[in-house]
Computed example of a mutant assay.
Amino acid sequence: MSEPENRCRLVLIVPDIADADEQAKIVGDALKGGDVASIILPQYGLGDGEFQKHAEKIVPLAQNAGAAALLAGDSRVVGRTKADGLHITGGAAEISEAVEKYADKLIVGGGNAADRHHALEIGEERPEYVFFGKLEGDIKPEAHPKNLALAEWWASMIEIPCIVMGGTDPASALAVAESGAEFVAMRLAVFGEPARAALVVAEINALLDEKAPRFEG
C-alpha cells in the first residue's frame, strides 16, 4: 500500500450529537476504518463546559489513532483537553489573532474563504492550512464547484495546504483530490449512517489510493 502522505488525505468533521459518549463512540468507530489525517470537532452551540466534556472524550481517541485533533470553538478548551489545534471559522483577522497567539504551540488553520481575495488575505496570515467550504457545507452529494475551483487555483500556486469540504457522497472525495487539494473534509458522507462509518472511511481511502493524483515528494 502506498504511503498516505503523498496523496489527498481524509479529514473528519465530527457530527452534531448531543450525547458525548455516543458522539465519541461514532468517531472511534470511524477512525478504525483507516487513514485519517485529522478530525475537526465543532462546538455546535454547546456551552464551553459541555464542549469540553465532548472534547475530552474525542481528543484522545483521535490522537491514539494517529489523527490530529482540532477544535472549532473556545480556544481555552483546546488547552484544557490537550487538543492539537484550533480551527477558525472566521476570516483573516480572526486567523491572524490565533496564529499570533498560538502558532508555536498549536496547529492553527481554517478560514471562511468564499473567493480568491479572501483566500489570499487568510494565506498572508500563514495558517497551517486554509479551509474551503463550511463545516456543515455538505448539503449535496458532490463538493461545491466553487470550492473545487478555489482549491485548484490555490494548490497550483500556494504552498499552504488546503482542506476542501466534500459532499454527502463518499465518491466526492475523488473530485477534491483531483483539484490538487491536500485534504478532503467529510461529515455526512462518513457519519450519515454511523454503523457504516468505518466501512466508508476504508472505501474513501481505497478510492484515493487507487485514483487520487500523487504529490511530488
Rank of each mutant, 00 (worst) to 15 (best):
R187L: 10
R214I: 13
D84L: 04
G66D: 01
Y102M: 10
R196H: 08
W154S: 06
I204L: 04
I13Y: 09
K101D: 09
E97P: 00
E100A: 15
K211Q: 14
A212H: 03
K57C: 04
F215G: 05
A155W: 07
D29N: 15
T168E: 10
E5C: 10
K57Q: 10
G109K: 00
A92I: 09
N112S: 11
G33E: 01
R116M: 13
G111S: 05
G66F: 05
K140Y: 14
S156K: 15
A173K: 01
A173D: 00
A67P: 03
K105R: 15
D169E: 15
R187C: 13
I160F: 10
G133Q: 03
L86A: 00
H118G: 08
R214H: 01
G137P: 04
E216K: 12
D19C: 13
G180Q: 02
F215C: 09
I26W: 13
K140T: 15
Y129D: 01
E193K: 14
A189P: 08
A198W: 01
V11L: 12
G166I: 04
I40R: 11
V184G: 04
A175S: 14
H117Q: 14
V201R: 09
E50M: 10
A114H: 11
R116F: 09
A113C: 15
E22I: 15
K25D: 14
L174G: 00
V14P: 08
Y129M: 08
